[in-house]
Design a protein around this nucleic acid. Structure first.
Length: 535
DNA sequence: GTATTCTGG
DNA sequence: TTCTACCAGAATACG
């Protein structure tokens, strides 16, 4: 941050004026964090935001974006480590305030880099992606981070106590079975030895050459008939996870100023263009188990008379794939609002939809996801717990039923081999340097990444654009409702009761209308007193 | 610091 | 012969 005197102008008031001057471009490294700090001091950063970290993230999402590396690579100059967070670097467009001579070397580097990287973006066809998606998203995310979300800890107290009691009982039970009161039940190494060496629950299992016995859920659930220690351990782990990850850490994240939790949305991190969330991660709050869902009940509106509202894209990645490959059968299924996994099953098993069994559907659903992730017959067999030959037949039938999906995959791979990158509908790139590797395993991983990145990345582009549109609309219409979280295909808002209808309509309209695909983008929107009820 | 495990999309 | 579905973050054990 700038010191109290301002670093560029003589007086703090002049500095504020420049920061809030929409006609002045601001270049910086990591604009969102600086925007947050300014906002806390009542200063609203305006004007073009040339974030060199974000620009470089677009140029190559998986590379190192540190300022020192960028200065070295693009300018050939060495900067000191531990860069200052001095806002003196914010000004891009002129020589600084009158009479100001001592620009830091770092600020000069940032200024130069902003020009160089903009040119690189234009050359790569990603100027619009920056200008129309990532740059406007900075202030949307800044606002979401500053707003935070209310987590009602008092509502979790009794639940936490109950979990602790259950967990302690399970721990004692496990130590009893193992006849070892010193056993660390949380140690996979120790539990592996108890299960496979002491109790010998799987006589066929061979000790791994290196490392420990595997004790993950998938392995253990196979053995649950053999001894009650298995279910006790799985139960213990589930309880412990909830307590140690989703309940006990939260008090430390609650701000003393507003009593809310403020996550950080990382905008320049993932390989595909998704956001991530950290400190705390609010994108992996449990929902699948009954006890896990209790946690979502604690996510509540900050004011009485408000509700939580959730709007999520239905099957967005599968729709993106249907659009990208142009498969007529899959597109038709979506257009007609069919159950797409059931429709897939009908096609690959060559039977009417009415005859599709739950098991047919489950296999087709697994296959659909598998295709998007660049499946192998071995991988599909493992997931379906079926013979590899059966899985291979399923994949063959799948591609025979959806030949355009195979063409899409082949075309994507061919282009990647040629250019060494793939791109989303919006031109976002992911480089695939190993696509021509002579090592089959490395090449296979690269191919899976190449197939998945345009699908996952296009979905990420779509929801980012929707966030910008929703934020604009809320502001233009003078609504008090505010976005608080994004969870990849879902937006969570808190909304005053008298705005419910307006916000619901606005969300559906903006999210569905982000862009026209050859399949409809459908959004489901619900609200309630808690996040759980809104979902 | 790495490995394991589990949470989400 | 080996490995095996994509993208993440956090807590914990252990060397």
């Amino acid at each position: 941050m700038a010191d109290e005197n301002g670093t560029r102008s003589g007086k703090p008031e002049e500095f504020r004026k420049e920061l809030e001057d929409a006609a002045k471009s601001k270049a910086a490294f990591g604009v969102k964090a600086q925007m947050n700090e300014l906002a806390k001091r009542g200063i609203s950063l305006k004007g073009r935001l040339l974030d060199i970290e974000l620009m470089h993230y677009l140029l190559n999402p998986e590379s190192d974006h540190r300022l020192t590396s960028l200065a070295q690579t693009y300018l050939g100059i060495s900067l000191d480590e531990a860069p200052s967070s001095d806002l003196g670097s914010l000004f891009a467009d002129d020589g600084g305030a009158p009479g100001e001579a001592d620009h830091t070397k770092e600020a000069e580097a940032i200024r130069s880099l902003s020009g160089v990287l903009q040119a690189e973006l234009a050359a790569a066809g990603m100027q619009k992606l920056y200008d129309e998606i990532e740059e406007p998203l900075i202030s949307v995310l800044s606002q979401m981070e500053l707003t935070g979300v209310k987590i009602d800890l008092s509502s979790l107290k009794d639940f936490a106590e109950s979990l602790r009691t259950q967990m302690n009982a399970r721990e004692a039970e496990i130590r009893g079975y193992a006849e070892n009161q010193a056993l660390n039940v949380s140690s996979p190494k120790q539990m592996g030895e108890v299960i496979f060496e002491q109790l010998k629950l799987d006589p066929k299992a061979k000790k791994p050459a290196k490392g420990n016995w595997p004790t993950d859920e998938e392995t253990l659930s196979e053995l649950s008939d053999r001894h009650p220690i298995i279910d006790a351990l799985l139960d213990y782990r589930g309880l412990r996870k909830l307590l140690s990850t989703y309940i006990e850490p939260f008090p430390q994240y609650i701000s003393e100023k507003d009593g809310r939790v403020h996550t950080t949305f990382n905008q320049a991190l993932t390989s595909t263009g998704r956001l991530s969330s950290s400190n705390p991660n609010l994108q992996n709050i449990p929902i699948r188990t009954e006890q896990g869902r209790e946690i979502r009940k604690a996510f509540v509106p900050g004011e009485s008379g408000w509700v939580m509202m959730s709007a999520d894209y239905s099957q967005i990645e599968l729709r993106v794939m249907a659009h990208l490959c142009g498969d007529e059968h899959m597109r038709q299924a979506f257009r007609e609002g069919q159950d797409v996994h059931a429709a897939t099953a009908a096609k690959i098993f060559r039977k009417p939809v009415a005859d599709v069994t739950a098991d047919d559907r489950r296999m087709a659903k697994t296959a659909n996801f598998g295709i998007m992730y660049g499946i192998s017959s071995f991988g599909l067999a493992q997931r379906l717990k079926c013979p590899r030959a059966v899985a291979k037949k399923l994949i063959d039938d799948y591609f025979e039923s959806f030949p355009s999906i195979r063409s899409f995959i082949d075309g994507t791979l061919a282009k990647a081999r040629e250019t060494l990158y793939t791109e989303t509908m919006f031109g976002r790139r992911r480089y695939i340097p190993d696509i021509n590797s002579h090592n089959a395993n490395i090449r296979a991983i690269a191919e899976r990444n190449a197939v998945n990145a345009p699908i996952q990345g296009t979905a990420a582009d779509i929801i980012k654009l929707a966030m910008i549109r929703v934020s604009d609309r809320l502001q233009k219409e003078g609504l008090k409702a505010r976005m608080v979280l994004q969870i990849h295909d879902e937006l969570l808002l808190e909304v005053p009761e008298n705005e419910i209808d307006a916000v619901k309509a606005l969300l559906v309209e903006e999210m569905q209308g982000v862009m026209e695909l050859s399949v409809p983008l459908t959004v489901e929107c619900n609200y309630g007193k808690t996040w759980l009820e809104a979902h």
